[in-house]
Design a binder for these strands. Structure first.
Lengths: 190, 190
DNA sequence: TCTCGCATGTAATGTGTTACATGATTTA
DNA sequence: TAAATCATGTAACACATTACATGCGAGA
């Protein structure tokens, strides 16, 4: 439902071909919306049919294998503008790692540590990438209103990653304390 | 992919009928994995075919409209145990609100305030619910290892909601400062 | 010419959402 | 007995993921 608008937002900032869009989604746009190139091509075609974007005219006939540049049309800008103020309910939560930890708690399975450690590592990588973007694009600059808002969106990603990493650390601490229990508790198990 | 295991985890904690499961997903399980009753029925049938769960025998023939209680089988426990230690990559981010704020930044549309305010309100509600569960089930209790892990999962939800709410506040502050700009900047706009 | 990388796409499958259907039990 | 509620489902659709297909241009 939102991919359509994520693409319109991306094209508002800059016209692009399908693959360029896919790359932008892999990089900067990915910290708030991810999409594969297959999704993007399909959605671009729909947006073109709906008259919200158009292909910029190029020399030569447009064929398979030739890059096609898309730009947003006024109708697309209007649709995006209207959507931005919608009061939609947030997407329901689906966090596989939380399921794992809860299941491991029920099963008494200390092996989850591997899953949590992995998750922590991936999120630490993502955090570094965000912090690098922040340094490169926003830190030590005089930002206008748009720049400050863009930075806030990046900051949301950074906040989420930090929260996640801290939580992983708390779980790992708890797991390790269970493996080396104190003297009071657990004098007779397994 | 994970719904299957979320159901197995739920049935590990307690055998349930389809609708009871749907209710548990609406309440406590919902803070880490959400699912509709239609999904749950479909998945329970698959799990039964795969031999991971079974229906508890009941007096009378099992027919449409009659409650069917499901319990996890040893094969189900094994499958869950194995999955818990999988080092899967986290799900890609898809946050519509971030797209909205970023799009609004590009469009210069202060109307996003409505969307952000709404999102903040919903997340504040969810946070209250989590905090109530924490008070009811975990606070002022002597928790065993399983209890402490269960609480940590709830804490993850609480942390996420708090982070989100703070971020919404930061965005709202920025939006309002743009509507009432200081004297230095913006002496000639619109 | 053969391979590689770029660019655009198709097809199949899986997962989630929405709307509706069916039957049993309770209660006004 | 009629309506509401509980409980289990079916069907159609939308969206996402994975694997693969097609065509072009550059360079070995």
């Amino acid at each position: 439902m939102s991919l359509k608008f994520a693409i319109l937002a991306a094209l508002t900032e800059r016209s692009s071909t399908g693959l360029e869009l896919a790359r932008r989604f892999d990089r900067s746009i990915g910290y708030f919306w991810s999409a594969s190139h297959q999704q993007i091509y399909r959605e671009l075609e729909r947006l073109r049919e709906a008259g919200l974007v158009s292909t910029v005219s190029r020399p030569g006939p447009p064929e398979r294998g030739q890059p096609k540049e898309f730009e947003i049309l006024p109708a697309g800008t209007s649709a995006l503008m209207a959507w931005t103020i919608n009061q939609d309910d947030p997407a329901p939560m689906r966090e596989a790692l939380f399921v794992k930890v809860r299941a491991a708690a029920a099963l008494g399975n200390p092996g989850v540590e591997a899953a949590v450690t992995h998750d922590r590592q991936i999120h630490a990588q993502i955090l570094s990438r965000y912090e690098e973007i922040d340094r490169r694009d926003f830190q030590d600059r005089d930002l206008d209103a748009q720049g400050r808002m863009q930075r806030l969106v990046l900051q949301a990603g950074i906040d989420l990653e930090r929260t996640r990493i801290q939580w992983c650390d708390a779980v790992l601490t708890e797991l390790r304390s269970q493996q080396q229990p104190n003297h009071e508790a657990d004098a007779s198990s397994t």
